[in-house]
């Protein structure tokens, strides 16, 4: 008799601890990950025995064989992977394992994410401008549609979210650098 639980858990690049800690709590309560989907945000858990597992979400530009070998040698198992993000797990008893033990490597990793978000934001500008002009001309010259409006609003929120994420990541790196 299988007992499943489906959970949608949104989390963002500037605070991966949100998903890491949540998955650890679930494992401690006996819920093991069975399936992962939707950019590591949708999980299916299966009830089994209680386990103490550390989860880590990491970002890499390109999945490198060398990277995976080093983590696997250290006892980490890959749970899932999606557009640069990798979810790792490791069982432990006393000392809670960490993927990053120094500030500099974390700062370097966050810089990569900042660069990726920054570049895709820059790439949005032509589309944003076109969209804005199109909206205006449609409003004045007819051809207005609800679907078009909704799409524009959603697109606008997505861009805002990227800008917000960028600012949060820069802030995280700043506090890492100044040690506060």
């Amino acid at each position: 008799m299988h007992n499943f639980k489906h959970v949608f858990k949104p989390w963002f690049a500037w605070k991966p601890e949100r998903i890491e800690d949540y998955l650890e709590e679930m494992a401690a309560e006996g819920w093991q990950i069975d399936r992962v989907a939707m950019s590591l945000m949708w999980y299916r858990f299966e009830q089994s025995e209680l386990q103490r597992i550390r989860f880590c979400a990491d970002y890499q530009w390109k999945p490198d064989e060398e990277y995976e070998i080093i983590l696997q040698d250290d006892g980490w198992t890959k749970v899932a992977q999606n557009s640069g993000w990798l979810l790792w797990k490791k069982e432990y008893e006393k000392v809670r394992p960490q993927l990053y033990t120094d500030k500099q490597s974390l700062i370097d990793r966050n810089r990569k994410i900042i660069l990726v978000i920054g570049c895709s934001l820059l790439a949005q500008f032509p589309a944003l401008m076109t969209n804005a002009f199109e909206r205006l001309s449609l409003r004045y010259f007819g051809g207005w549609s609800l679907a078009g409006e909704i799409f524009s609003v959603m697109y606008f929120f997505l861009v805002m979210l990227m800008i917000y994420g960028l600012i949060r990541l820069v802030m995280v790196n700043h506090s890492l650098q100044t040690g506060s």
Partner: peptide, 14 residues
């Protein structure tokens, strides 16, 4: 000093 695997990989690449 127990260096994390992510730190090892990042530092080696750099």
């Amino acid at each position: 000093l127990r260096i994390g695997a992510g730190t090892i990989y990042g530092t080696l690449s750099k």
